[in-house]
Design a protein around this nucleic acid. Sequence first.
DNA 1: ATTAAAATATGATTTTGGTCATCTTTAATC
DNA 2: GATTAAAGATGACCAAAATCATATTTTAAT
Lengths: 230, 230
Amino acid sequence: MLENSHKTITCATCKVRQDSLFAQFCDDNLKHLDDHKACSYHKKNQALFLEGSYPRGVYCINEGKVKVYSRGDNGKEQIIHIAKGGEVVGFKAMFSGDPYNVSAETLEESNICFIGKEDFLTMMDTNPILRNGVMSELSKELSHRADMITAMSQKSVRERVAYSLALLNDIYEEDEINLTREDLANFVGTATETLIRLLKDLKDENVLEIHGRKLKVTDKKGLYKIAGLH
Amino acid sequence: MLENSHKTITCATCKVRQDSLFAQFCDDNLKHLDDHKACSYHKKNQALFLEGSYPRGVYCINEGKVKVYSRGDNGKEQIIHIAKGGEVVGFKAMFSGDPYNVSAETLEESNICFIGKEDFLTMMDTNPILRNGVMSELSKELSHRADMITAMSQKSVRERVAYSLALLNDIYEEDEINLTREDLANFVGTATETLIRLLKDLKDENVLEIHGRKLKVTDKKGLYKIAGLH
DNA sequence: ATTAAAATATGATTTTGGTCATCTTTAATC
DNA sequence: GATTAAAGATGACCAAAATCATATTTTAAT
């Protein structure tokens, strides 16, 4: 159980706020945010929203990890992104009037604050800091997805495994990467068996340590080279 | 040569404006736009902007097609999008402060109007219609790119050829799809030889007619089925 | 603690699609 | 219009990765 799972988080003292859309908020803004958010504890594997549903608000992750994924024809998951503490999830599709075409689900037990769509949009209207932050985020994510498309289409599966591990290594920061092999395969876009074999290759090449399900990158430079990064 | 290649387009009477970000502009807005835009004729295969450069403004396509692409590790192009008349290109990366990670280049001779970054951003600040249009567009494009990532990762090349042709069929509307085999392969994300073989298969299945380089979809329903759409 | 179920791992086999080589056709240039 | 270059097409071959089968380990549930 998370240490603060029973508490309501106060935005002003939230440890991950500096990484979030609300980093530059003034005291008044933070007060407003506190008054309009709802904190809640989520177990592992709980859905935040589902593909096909309409956005009802945004989810600010205080602690935990959330996978954002879409489903292909056969129902197979493609993980588009894994969000960590400080990230706000669920706002990117809010401005088109269309339903979500991705789903979001916790990967670990998590503390997540919810802000309703109306409140969020009002804040965006009245707060240029938030508006600019949102625009910047949308822009960055579009760039990132263009990179993903190119990577998916041109890299070999081995390269994509390295590429994905490089991304995940940043997301998990000091922690070891902790995903099921299936989730990792769904992030890489390959079969679970192939992923497992390629992980072992990387281990044999001393790029990676495998501790049960947890993965520790031991040669970041080597990993980047295989991934075709830098 | 395009018929109006020597003329300056007037926004108020621009035939493709109803498809653009500026569709809902009032007369004053249109006047302002006219005063701050520069129309120009572009030959085939002319670059509008390049990966790595900083956005200097936006490009509103009056007539012609523009490919937006990124380059993979080996320099191979991945075409992310093909823009047609009415589309505004080059604004999606403008809000992050980062350089473009895609390039844009005309595929045909084209008439394109340019609006400088400062002017465009000022319009966005003062014009909620434009702002909402931009936000909506960013949202929609993010959804579309999530779909692309999933398609690239999970569909077979044959399915991706059909998927790409379905997208292109909408883009080329009443016209036949007119791309080099190489560009089409770079859109699908495959080798040119593989693309050519698969086009022939689709022709043999009476889904497609091949008229030299031009492609005509004759069985849209069949194409969609192969693509895994609907 | 025991059992059941899920996740991880490995081998064998097949399929897909990329690469290389070569040839033909079309388009561009002088 | 002739020449050259670029684009399109086809065959042969090979490597990468998916699939299928099955075994082992870990985790969850009773």
